[in-house]
C-alpha cells in the first residue's frame, strides 16, 4: 500500500541566494532514486511538504516547471524553525519531499487564451513554474502579460530570469515596487493599484493571481472591475498544510481543504466558501 507520509529522498543540487539579506534561497533538488523521479508527475501550482528529518516539515509551492527537466525548484523564506533548518542546508545534503500535493493552475483551459499573471513578493514561486511552462510551448497560448510586485527591488526573486523575461518580445513584464527608490526604472505602487492603472483587457483572458493574502484580497475586486468574470480569475491560497492529504484538519476554508481541493481556486468557487479571505 502507498504510504503518503514517507518522504522521497532528494539531494540538494544547487542553492541560489535571492536577496541581499539572505532570507530567500532557491533550492534545486535532484531525486536520489531515478524511479521516484519518474513517478513524480506534477503541474504548475502544486506543492510539496519539504522535510528535514529531526526538524519537521513545511509546505512549499513547486517553483520549477515539469517542462524544465528532472530537478525540482523551491524558494524558501526563512521564517520559522523548519525554514531556518532548510537554510542551513548545503549543496550535496539530503532532504525529503512529499508530493506532488494539491491541484494546479488550469493549464488545459489556458490553451488558446491570453494569460494575465499577477504576483507579489516571494509567492512568485508557482507563478514562475506556470510562466516557464507556458513559455515552454509558447505557440499554445495568446498574449502573456505579467505584473509582479515586491516591497523593494532587492526582494524580487529569480532576478536573472527577470532580466531575460524583460527582453523577450513574446511576453510583457511589469515590475512594481511599493515606494520610489533611486535608480528604479519600473513602476511604483501596490499590485492592486498598478493592475488598475495598467487595465489589462479581459477578452479571452485568464487571470492567475498569487501573493500575500492582503494582495490577493485587494487585487481580485480590481479584476472584477476590469470585467473579468469570476470563472476566469484563479488564485492560489495559503494555509498551514500539514498532512497534505485532507486528514489533519488544519487547512480547511469552509468545507474545502486547501491541500486537496486547492491550493488553486477560481473566484467563482471562492464566492461560495465562507471566510476565504
Amino acid at each position: 500500500m502507498d504510504n503518503s507520509y514517507v518522504p522521497i529522498r532528494m539531494r540538494v543540487e544547487k542553492i541560489a541566494v535571492e536577496d541581499p539579506e539572505r532570507n530567500l534561497r532557491t533550492y534545486d533538488l535532484a531525486f536520489e532514486d531515478e524511479d521516484a523521479g519518474k513517478r513524480f508527475n506534477y503541474l504548475p501550482g502544486q506543492f510539496c511538504e519539504m522535510s528535514i528529518l529531526g526538524k519537521g516539515e513545511s509546505p512549499f509551492g513547486i517553483a520549477s516547471s515539469p517542462s524544465e527537466g528532472d530537478l525540482l525548484k523551491f524558494t524558501v523564506n526563512r521564517a520559522g524553525s523548519v525554514t531556518g533548518e532548510i537554510h542551513y542546508l548545503r549543496e550535496g545534503d539530503a532532504v525529503g519531499i512529499r508530493g506532488p500535493l494539491g491541484n494546479w493552475y488550469p493549464v488545459e483551459k489556458l490553451k488558446g487564451m491570453n494569460v494575465l499573471i499577477i504576483g507579489g513578493g516571494f509567492a512568485f514561486t508557482t507563478l514562475r513554474s506556470l510562466l516557464v511552462y507556458l513559455l515552454g510551448s509558447r505557440g499554445d497560448y495568446g498574449d502573456i502579460n505579467v505584473i509582479y510586485g515586491a516591497r523593494n527591488p532587492d526582494l524580487f526573486i529569480y532576478k536573472n530570469e527577470i532580466e531575460e523575461w524583460r527582453t523577450r518580445e513574446d511576453m510583457e513584464l511589469h515590475l512594481t515596487i511599493d515606494s520610489p527608490v533611486d535608480g528604479w526604472s519600473g513602476m511604483t505602487g501596490f499590485v492592486p493599484s498598478v493592475t488598475g492603472e495598467l487595465a489589462p483587457g479581459q477578452e479571452n483572458t485568464m487571470a492567475i493571481v498569487c501573493g500575500p493574502p492582503i494582495m490577493i484580497k485587494f487585487t481580485l475586486p480590481v479584476l472584477t472591475e476590469l470585467g473579468f468574470p469570476d470563472e476566469r480569475i484563479y488564485t492560489s491560497l495559503e494555509r498551514r498544510m500539514k498532512c497534505g492529504i485532507g486528514k489533519c484538519g488544519r487547512c480547511n476554508i469552509g468545507s474545502r481543504y486547501v491541500c486537496i481541493d486547492g491550493p488553486v481556486f477560481s473566484l467563482a468557487q471562492l464566492r461560495n466558501i465562507p471566510e476565504a479571505f
Binding site: 507520509y5 528529518l53 529531526g54 526538524k55 519537521g56 500539514k242 486528514k247 489533519c248 484538519g249
Partner: peptide, 18 residues
C-alpha cells in the same frame, strides 16, 4: 481526528510521530 506531525530525535536517530 485533527493531528500534528512532529519529529522526536536523540542524536541522529529518531522517529516521526503523528
Amino acid at each position: 481526528h485533527c493531528f500534528d506531525i512532529q519529529d522526536e530525535s536523540q542524536g541522529s536517530e529518531g522517529r516521526r510521530v503523528r
